[in-house]
Write a protein that binds this DNA or RNA. Structure first.
Lengths: 348, 348
DNA sequence: CTGAAAGCGCTTACAG
DNA sequence: CTGAAAGCGCTTACAG
């Protein structure tokens, strides 16, 4: 029903009895154009609210000025905050973004990546799904000349720019904070063991335990997926064991919510029975019951940087072979959930 | 640096020594094509992983299969949940979405709407900003033949399909719940008075008070914007008055967070000193301290419906003059924040 | 059954 | 300084 007509160069040319070429040149501010002609063209273009058809431009220069973004889930604080950063910088640079979701499924990620590619995006920013182990679909893009930048859940198999945080240190510090509060039986609830972030956070966790001469119990390291029921069962089982942990380091926010739910159901108090500390970027964390100790990431800045690096790859004239991995810092925000005396500093 | 070559019809035609037309027809499954030729084309296309260039297609049929979505903020639970619904259905129908943000600014909304239009989107889904009073920029799109569907913050000035909830009833019920708990001095903290949702929620609020023979105090109806500091001051002032309200109905989640912050700062307990009830769709609401009574909306379904209606407008052959406004139901989830005895049902 | 031609809206090397 | 022509990748009415 899109019956109306968008103004084209041809319309302007006809009204002014000029050729399309001349109009095009005048609009581009070409110097070798009669000043008078130029003025007329500009005036009429303004009057008719002419705006060039990006589709036609794309067809010519094989650039769409569109960046694809692949995340697990849009309706996820972490993702939407990074996306906000991406949008912010992309927009400034004249790029628009198409967001796609993997819903934590490998198959969906592959399919949707192909879909984005078939849309002729100029580049892709991706954080891989919890299931993803094979990244051929990303190499495929790169081989096609579509640059890819990874963030958060990156992969060693792909040579490209990456934006991450110091997951090792984030986990190490959070674990130390728990230990310093006197918790000695600490579990770690995390995601797929095949993801680099999982491995780094886990190393940070175990190194903190070892540094304090505490044993590492493998049965207290839970690798979960996002099937809520299965995960709830795993967590329930952990807390129902004869010897249960008195603290937990959680690798992602969504798991901390599941954990909170299970603890309520089991009538275990946080932090009196079990202390919690979690990687999380929810602005509501301090308002939770109890306020949740969080390892925070500079989400907005990460998004901005990721696009910046991507646009660098897209617009670079020569082939880039030197890729960098930018590692940003996490910040530990300590709240009631990991404090021995259930009273938060200065709050409540 | 996008130097690699995407496979085109021409490549296939050359390899098979056929014309581009024939290849095109074979790929489209045209009947009047030699079965053998057809088979060859299909096979080679498969082998070369040919995928048609959507840019070229768009240029021909003036359809981009792209839908624009304009929201206040991506990193906002309500918005991202609706967007998830939009993505879900749009994807099924072969459409992709470009998301744009107004950041609650009228100027930004107008600019970004024009930007989307210049991208030749096939249609727009929008919830207007808190500042928006004039909707000419939307009428402009419609006049250009680009259909628009509104949701949540809709406007009477635009004749089109709309997806909303029963804001009046949502506010009415939430207010009644507070009254039934014995709260009689209830304030309403809400957004721009020029928005329809504000007006409807306000009517629901005042009608509930009147139904229970309670007075409506205009000084207890706060219209806020998203300038955090100004809003905090307004709210602080409300609670510092000699006679302060003992309960508040909040119109949007973000304001409820600001309100919680101010109450903490003033050392007022929820719900003992002040009860709270808020329109909110945060999955974390039940985990807040205290758990927040929420008027919830069917966000995902709203998004799905909005695209469905939009695609109907886009693909309709004849001009549609009959527009519908679909009104969905809200659900009141009562938690501690609005319960007299600070003990939630079955929880904690 | 197949191909050459025109056209979608634009840019740009080539003439003049 | 200006215009005609070619071309980006595709579709489709028109010939044959």
């Amino acid at each position: 029903m899109n019956n109306q007509h968008q103004i084209t160069l041809k319309d302007i040319a006809q009204q002014l009895k000029l050729s399309v070429s001349t109009v095009s040149r005048a609009l581009k501010g070409s110097t070798d154009i009669n000043a008078e002609t130029s003025k007329q063209v500009l005036a009429l273009a303004e009057e008719l609210k002419y705006s060039p058809n990006p589709i036609a431009l794309s067809l010519k220069d094989k650039k769409t000025k569109v960046i694809g973004v692949m995340v697990q889930e849009i309706a996820n604080n972490y993702c939407s905050a990074v996306i906000a950063g991406i949008e912010n910088f992309a927009c400034k640079m004249g790029y628009q973004t198409i967001i796609s979701q993997s819903h934590e499924k490998y198959e969906t990620e592959v399919q949707n990546t192909r879909l984005l590619a078939s849309r002729r995006i100029d580049g892709l920013i991706i954080s891989i799904s919890n299931e993803t182990r094979n990244t051929d679909h990303l190499q495929e893009l790169i081989d096609k000349g579509i640059p890819v930048v990874m963030f958060d859940r990156v992969s060693n198999a792909i040579a490209t720019h990456k934006v991450i945080v110091d997951d090792y240190r984030g986990a190490f510090e959070a674990t130390c904070q728990l230990i310093e509060q006197g918790y000695e039986n600490i579990a770690h609830i995390t995601i797929s063991k095949h993801l680099l972030i999982t491995q780094n956070r886990l190393r940070g966790f175990t190194d903190a335990l070892r540094t304090h001469q505490l044993p590492v119990r493998s049965e207290w390291i839970l690798h979960c997926d996002f099937n809520t029921e299965a995960t709830e069962n795993k967590i329930r089982h952990l807390f129902c064991s004869t010897k249960r942990p008195d603290a937990v380091l959680l690798s992602v926010e969504r798991l901390s919510i599941t954990c909170l739910k299970v603890l309520r159901e089991l009538e275990l108090q946080v932090p009196d029975d079990v202390a919690l500390s979690s990687f999380s970027d929810n602005p509501l964390s301090p308002f939770l019951n109890p306020a949740l100790t969080s390892v925070c990431q500079p989400t907005f800045a990460m998004g901005q940087l990721a696009v910046e690096l991507l646009i660098e790859l897209i617009e670079s004239k020569q082939i880039i072979k030197e890729y960098k991995t930018v590692q940003m810092k996490t910040t530990l925000h300590v709240h009631e959930s990991s404090l021995r005396k259930a009273v938060a500093v200065g709050e409540k």
